[in-house]
């Protein structure tokens, strides 16, 4: 009996990790079903939404284990999605043991979303690329890169303080607009192109793409709620910039 309880926890942990990192709902349900069947349950029913998941596992002896897990935080970590996906496939092909899967899943859970100065500086390079793509000069791009890196540092600090996602986006965008406003007082540049590049690092790319993929696989609930999330983040970015620009008198 104890063993079954542990297997239920394992399946639930895999689903939780995937949802927290922003995987598509069909992948979460499919992974839980695949792992549950590999663990020896005769029937597995999973139901996932972006904010929580439910699962029923039918054991061969007729007992049914039902669990609910509420998902309260989320972050972008595609590497964890890829690893959980590979783990669940290896587990259902019986290439790795239950203990190994548990150890790996716990490691991924403790690791969370690793933050580093390197990620923030390279992310600033994304702002540079966008400024070039929208027709800015190399000098504009350089300023956008620095601003973008600072924006990423600010949002990762806010994330650690568990500030809500929308406020993170608004404050990050306000910081970007404020910095660019300051820079453009001193130097002749294209402030709009620089701000645009810098706030692109806040774009809700994961929410947008998973929303589309959820909708097309018929997951209307999470498709619509993720579209709403992407829209709300975009509006938050726009209001952060708009607030600073109107205070700055432009």
């Amino acid at each position: 009996m104890k063993g079954m309880e542990q297997l239920v926890g394992l399946v639930l942990l895999a689903g939780e990790l995937l949802l927290t990192c922003g995987a598509e709902v069909y992948r979460v349900e499919e992974t839980m079903e695949r792992m549950g069947q590999a663990a020896g349950f005769v029937q597995v029913e999973g139901f996932a939404t972006p904010t929580g998941l439910f699962i029923s596992l039918h054991a061969p002896n007729g007992r049914v284990y039902t669990r609910v897990r509420r998902i309260r935080q989320s972050y972008n970590n595609l590497a964890t999605i890829a690893e959980v996906n590979a783990l669940s496939r290896a587990f259902s092909a019986k290439r790795i043991s239950v203990d190994e899967v548990r150890r790996e899943l716990q490691r991924l859970q403790e690791q969370g979303a690793p933050e580093s100065l390197r990620r923030q500086l390279i992310g600033g390079g994304g702002a540079m690329a966008f400024t070039i793509m929208y027709g800015g000069t190399w000098f504009d791009a350089l300023l956008a890169g620095v601003t973008g890196a600072i924006v990423l540092m600010v949002t990762s600090f806010l994330h650690r303080q568990s500030v809500p996602k929308f406020l993170q986006a608004a404050l990050g965008a306000a910081v970007a607009a404020g910095l660019v406003l300051g820079i453009s007082q001193l130097l002749t540049t294209h402030p709009n192109l620089i701000t645009l590049g810098a706030v692109m690092v806040l774009a809700p790319g994961v929410a947008m793409t998973t929303a589309i993929r959820d909708l097309l696989s018929g997951e209307l609930l999470s498709g619509l709620s993720r579209s709403a999330e992407a829209l709300a983040v975009s509006v938050a970015i726009a209001s952060g910039v708009a607030l600073v620009l109107s205070l700055g008198g432009r």
Partner: peptide, 24 residues
């Protein structure tokens, strides 16, 4: 050529922001 490179750098750097596995 600059634009093609900018598109490459843009997607590459965003893959760091979204924590894409290093090998991909």
């Amino acid at each position: 050529v600059t634009q093609i490179l900018a598109g490459f750098v843009g997607a590459l750097t965003f893959s760091y922001i979204y924590r894409v596995p290093a090998s991909q």
